[in-house]
Nucleic acid binder design. Sequence first.
RNA 1: CGGGGAGUAGCUCAGAUGGUUAGAGUACUGGUCUGGGGGACCAGGGGUCCGCGGUUCGAGUCCGCGCUCCCCGACCA
Length: 516
Amino acid sequence: MQLPPAQSLRSARTPAPPDPAFAPSPVHSAAMADERPAMPKAITRKSEDFDRWYTDTVRRAELADYAPVRGCMVIRPYGYALWERIQRALDDMLKRTGHENMYFPLLIPESYLLKEAEHVKGFAPEVAWVTQGGQKELEERLAIRPTSETIICSMFADWIHSYRDLPVLINQWANVMRWEKRTRLFLRTSEFLWQEAHTFHETHAQAAAEVDTGLECYRELAEEWLAIPVIPGRKTESEKFAGAEYTLSIEAMMSDGWALQSGTSHHLGQNFTRAYGISFSDRENVLQHPFQTSWGLSTRIIGGLIMAHGDDAGLVMPPRVAPIQVVVVPVTRSNDPEGAAAVDEACRRIAAEAGDVRLRVDRREGIRPGEKYAHWELRGVPLRLTVGARDLATGQVTVTRRVDGESWAEPLDGVAARLPALLDEVQARIRSRAEGLLRDRSVEVRSLDELREAFAERPVFANAPFCERPACEEAVTSAAHALTIRVLRRDRSGEVGRCLACGEASSEVALIARAY
RNA sequence: CGGGGAGUAGCUCAGAUGGUUAGAGUACUGGUCUGGGGGACCAGGGGUCCGCGGUUCGAGUCCGCGCUCCCCGACCA
């Protein structure tokens, strides 16, 4: 097969359309099908194959790659830098709300795990076990933590004695392992990184307030930092955490209309504290079991970030968590040393005046500007400054916004000082685009027929009055392919209606969607 | 965990019925010309053909077992 001439290749590519997230390119697909070059320079089109687009993007943007063990991944420096940004934002919130970090061991004795019946039942299928140390078979096998409630309870049983010891508000940043059957980079890996907060309280109400605090931290992280609008709510009985009294979560819409559970917060009641024998003397000197919560947010959120904002050119990073916020690309000619010196001088000046802005000047030699543009677009860098002789002739630089491809000229003087404001605007645009998507693809339904209809064309977020009966949940989830009740919406709890399945009185609104 | 597909250079792949020293494009290295959207030319380097075992004079190719990835279903942050 003949390779197409370079010209036709170039014309087949679509240079960052104005709204690339929703702009399919039939021209491109046709070209790819008939004369697909050996190594396509572009990643798979999002509209063509969302799953492949996702994996391509993660790998080509060098966020992560597969490791030799099934379901495990290596988080590469760019991906880890992103995680560190997320960690810092969330960790600050945790500290602000009174939580302290500590660390528990990776290995948990089997007997610890067995104490809470529901919990064991829930996690049994996905626990990985250590059975041997060196050459010796262990007397008791050790679980690689799938979560840490059990070990934490066992330890705090020794440390909590009085109401004066409460509340306990702790958190740990750790890795956990769940032997997953179907894995996907970031979204569902066997080992993942997360934060797990664990708290103990005197009263049920105090614990309930803490569950809300946790969820609010997640909402703030998602919306204010990651620019992902979320819908907070309560999980149905069938979807709640193993061993919890109830579970709250935030649900985000990915740009293909699927839902991603992006953070969960559990009220554990006294289920674990009773099972693990944690008790305290209350203010009347009566022995009580404390009320407990736990909540976690994982590297999965990175998958959410990618799928919520990314487009055909790759990632779109919200500036507040972008490892690199601004990239400066110098454009010079080799036969114009004076021009090159001026460009270099301008780049230095911008870098020097950038202050806290995370800015990088791409001085790599022998790489043409166009390739650098593509390189940083793939990585989602929010703003690009192009600095060439043409710009400097009029005392300007060219600014290009990743999210929508908009380009304009800014005076070189003081441009560095204006970057924070420009980045804020980018943050707002990314968020409002995501909010627009959520709005456009949310529908209200009142019956199973309407539900089916709503999903006939494409995945949506369907809201419906729901009575919470398991039989009705079953009816809802089997009404169309792969439906799930994501949450009972927080913001609409108490809304009077008639259940979409049985028609009986209801006071909750279910968010129904297909989910990752 | 069931059904299907795949694994050959960093990547995408070609290697017919087993037969010399395993190829291409791209990426990589050096050089020259270049430089405002993934450049051109020249010269190079790079392979335990996923692993283990077997059949054979001879295995990338055939057989068995295992591992990993992808797709479709049942379970999950």
